[in-house]
Design a protein around this nucleic acid. Sequence first.
DNA 1: TGTAGGGCTGTTCACGTTAACAGGCATGCT
DNA 2: AGCATGCCTGTTAACGTGAACAGCCCTACA
Lengths: 349, 349
Amino acid sequence: MVKRPDNGAPANARAPRRSPGMVDVARLAGVSHMTVSRVINDQPTVSQVTRQRVLAAMSELGYRPNVAARALVTGRTRTLGVISVDTTLYGPASMLLAIERAAREVDYSVSIASLPGLDRRTLRDAFDALASQAVEGIIAITPHVAATAALRHVPKDVPVVAVEGGKGPLPTVAVDQYLGATEATRHLLSLGHRTVGHIAGPSDWYEAQERERGWRDMLVAEGREVPEVVRGDWSPRSGYAAAKQLLEKTTQKVTALFVANDQMAIGALRALGEAGISVPRQVSLVGFDDIPEAEFFSPPLTTLRQEFSEVGRRSLELLLEQVEGAPRTRRRLVIPPQFIVRDSTAAPE
Amino acid sequence: MVKRPDNGAPANARAPRRSPGMVDVARLAGVSHMTVSRVINDQPTVSQVTRQRVLAAMSELGYRPNVAARALVTGRTRTLGVISVDTTLYGPASMLLAIERAAREVDYSVSIASLPGLDRRTLRDAFDALASQAVEGIIAITPHVAATAALRHVPKDVPVVAVEGGKGPLPTVAVDQYLGATEATRHLLSLGHRTVGHIAGPSDWYEAQERERGWRDMLVAEGREVPEVVRGDWSPRSGYAAAKQLLEKTTQKVTALFVANDQMAIGALRALGEAGISVPRQVSLVGFDDIPEAEFFSPPLTTLRQEFSEVGRRSLELLLEQVEGAPRTRRRLVIPPQFIVRDSTAAPE
DNA sequence: TGTAGGGCTGTTCACGTTAACAGGCATGCT
DNA sequence: AGCATGCCTGTTAACGTGAACAGCCCTACA
């Protein structure tokens, strides 16, 4: 047996000193390493005096449990993974934040993997990156049809919860986009608008699909004409472009517009402004998300608020149910959005 | 020795099958586990045929290296931590994203810890959460005076890089806020404004301090009057409130305003709009950050662009230098912002 | 006083990997 | 032939922890 220079004992042994382990604590406290282990894991079968001695020894040495060793022997890492699209967007960022907070609360840590693209390969890579860290579960904030489909072909040995994941086989938490779109459209119609135009999100996002479907269904249900949809990519720039396009090609005037998110709405607002069209006097506008800026658009934007942090917390709950094998409550959780009326909507002139 | 049911051999042994280890791969390939280890770590001392056999066995069993075991024996986790304030803000979110992408590129994973508050205790908790996961280094996106100060009192055994961390002892990456503020102010003065008002950020943020200092210094250097500062908290709401306050209390008219970030600028824009003041005809406005929405404000906002993803990548580089003990290049990296002139600034009437 | 039981502590082993060292075998040189 | 060399492979021992089990001592009770 090759003994390394027994560090700890002789004061002048200037070995690079590895960090202390249970045995070091045990030696200092005059107990066995098992007793130290028991103290750490809060097992009741340790006498008060011993516990205190061990605790003292731990803090004297600045002892920190070695997660690797623990994970090796227990087979558990207490680490969760979050796969997400562009975390620069307000929604994903808020959810990620909520997930991390809630996870730390119950002593899990969270590891992240972003998705540079949308193809299957990319998702596979992200998934592998997390899996090879031995995360115990994964929350996928991947609201695209393609990504969610890819999730189905992923190894089954780690629990997954999909956020805004459509109606797949995976446990899912989602905001009721359809309901929100319906409300927005009904609101505009009830103000007296003949029909409602729509600037939609990218067609491979579930959220975009659902919002469009809700809008369309409501128009049809009310027997209104369904204008052609113009599509953006969620960015302000694309909203601007879409609104311009709408202004050019529409022969009859649109007096109400349901824009699929707030960022595109600010772009649309700008385009309308440039065209000398007053909101809400000539055109009414409804957005979606209620980003912090929405209240301060000119005019303040009527929109649908999504409780992203609620979604984040719920998805974590759902994941932990699977991870810890607790009785599973539900497979799919749907959270209603909240309709917020501000100044961008009014009756037509 | 207690043998668990030897899983792998008899086809009907329905043990809950643990995931395969090196020994399983080794057995299938007819080699020792050490050879498998060598293949995994790309050591050259393995013959081509053997390597192929091992690779085949690995993929047949779906083998995944056990990170815990590896970390235990090597003492390295290849995990980095990011501590951050509100990742809902555009800046931190962008940096986090860039850091994760760059880290995965070099096979590190990223664990996150958010800061619910700003006190020393909170930061300490976040730091501990990451440290007890044995991260090899930490990037702290904590642009507050208090948080950065707290960072100094943190255990020294893990490398830390501060982003926007002021002039502390820690390696730092920062955008040149002072320079940006200077440019903004000079720009407004050169348009012919008598002086420039300022809506500042929270006083305990370095960014807020530097932007204010740049603004003030420029005014003083040009021999202009220095108006009283009004302070917000970065949010659109606070920008709105600050602008209102400014309009009320200022006896002489302000014709130019430097707002410490774009989000507050949109609030200010709203307040000015409500007061019937036209931008830029009556008042000129400059923001800071260049968030994606800024280009579509009404009017499009003149602002200073911060290359957040650049900051993220650089901070990772700096951290890895420490972690891997490479020759340290620099202690402090400063990145200039880019001045972007749009339509919210003009000569006074 | 003997004995059972409970409270507390210790001993040993396994987890899956890499480091360190120890061969075996072919080749080339003297 | 003898021997060194280099290439490839195997054996053994850690790494720090928790599970399982074994014991010790003290108390309670017959």
